[in-house]
């Protein structure tokens, strides 16, 4: 592959990055729009991280918000109790989430819990944590615990506008994408893709399936946990309702719809589906509260049925077609 071809391949990424960087300059005045784009990116981070365990390793994890909640509670509690900055809380939250993932994942993989049962046990995990934190009065409990409010304080990761949050989430997204990309080009990535297709076949050619799955789960949990710390600051409080099964499922759905194992797939799905959902929510909102959910569900079913490979290959084709039109077949990726 020569440099020109490489540039052409990276072009969408560059354009996307530039657009992402200047979005706040365009819509930054409007708080509502800023919430929208931040939400989209936020789901983008979660779905991209999910791609490691779900898309590559083929383990249908439905516990994204379990790790998110753990990160949020870790960072939030550290801030409330000992005034630890959320910037450090992000890392510690990620570590706690990853540690918890190891604790849960080890026996699951050790005892061969797979497929549906893995999915269900991870869904159950979210509920277990929600109830556990509701009952754990020292850090959780039924009342929201508000983080100390400071107007625009970097130390507390609290800002008067959504723009800084947007850039923080964008940073997380870039990290998640980079990690994904690096893994997909490494031994671990190939191993994950292989065992996701057939664990037996991977094992007999030397893949330690349990260890690989556990690594994937921990990396995913770390990214999601770190994101959780930001989530807590964004909302300004922590609450057991952060452990949300429906939203965890949605993360997995974005990953599936995007295209399992394709680095940029989940992000694409998040951009299209989440912004579509938020748009509908805003425009159908008061009159037909749930119509947007219904439309969302139908879109999901249709894509899952007719595009089981996800939407990413479609974009790839469209881009190739566009390239062949613009610069000629020779450079088409």
């Amino acid at each position: 592959m020569n440099t020109k071809q490489r540039t052409i391949k990276m072009l969408p990424l560059l354009v996307g990055l530039v657009v992402a960087l200047i979005v706040p300059l365009i819509v930054g005045k409007n708080q509502y729009n800023m919430v929208l784009v931040t939400t989209v990116l936020f789901y983008g981070v979660l779905a991209t991280a999910w791609n490691i365990i779900g898309g590559m390793a083929g383990q249908l994890d439905l516990a994204a918000w379990a790790y998110l909640g753990l990160g949020a509670f870790t960072s939030g509690t550290l801030l409330l109790r000992w005034n630890v900055t959320p910037w450090l809380g992000m890392i510690l939250g990620g570590l706690v989430a990853a540690g918890f993932a190891a604790l849960v994942g080890y026996p699951l993989f050790r005892f061969g819990v797979k497929e549906v049962w893995y999915a269900l046990s991870s869904a159950a995990l979210v509920e277990v944590l929600r109830v556990a934190f509701l009952m754990w009065d020292e850090v959780g409990g039924p009342v929201e615990r508000y983080l100390p409010f400071h107007r625009a304080s970097w130390y507390h990761m609290r800002f008067a506008s959504y723009v800084p949050y947007y850039y923080i989430v964008l940073g997380l997204l870039l990290i998640a994408l980079f990690v994904n990309y690096r893994i997909s080009r490494s031994k671990l990535g190939y191993y994950l893709l292989a065992l996701g297709e057939s664990e037996d076949a991977a094992e007999v050619i030397g893949v330690d399936a349990r260890a690989c799955k556990l690594k994937a789960l921990m990396i995913y949990a770390f990214i999601v946990g770190a994101t959780g710390a930001v989530y807590a600051c964004l909302f300004g409080f922590i609450h057991p309702s952060f452990f949300n099964t429906a939203q965890s499922t949605e993360v997995a759905i974005l990953g599936i719809i995007g295209g399992m194992g394709i680095v940029y797939g989940p992000l694409l799905a998040a951009i299209i589906l989440v912004s579509g959902r938020e748009f509908m929510r805003a425009n159908l909102g008061s009159s037909l509260e749930s119509l947007y959910l219904a439309i969302y569900a139908v879109v999901l079913i249709v894509i899952a049925l007719f595009r089981p490979q996800g939407i990413a290959p479609l974009f790839r084709k469209a881009y190739d077609w566009l390239l062949s039109r613009v610069v000629g077949e020779r450079y088409a990726a």
């Binding site: 599936i256 959910l293 969302y296 569900a297 139908v298 999901l300 079913i301 049925l305």
Partner: peptide, 24 residues
Amino acid sequence: RYRYVTQIAVTVGLAILLRAIAQM
């Protein structure tokens, strides 16, 4: 003919749809 993942996606979609309809 697809993997279980597709079945989960489709039935989760159905679940969301039914929930939304009930809510409406």
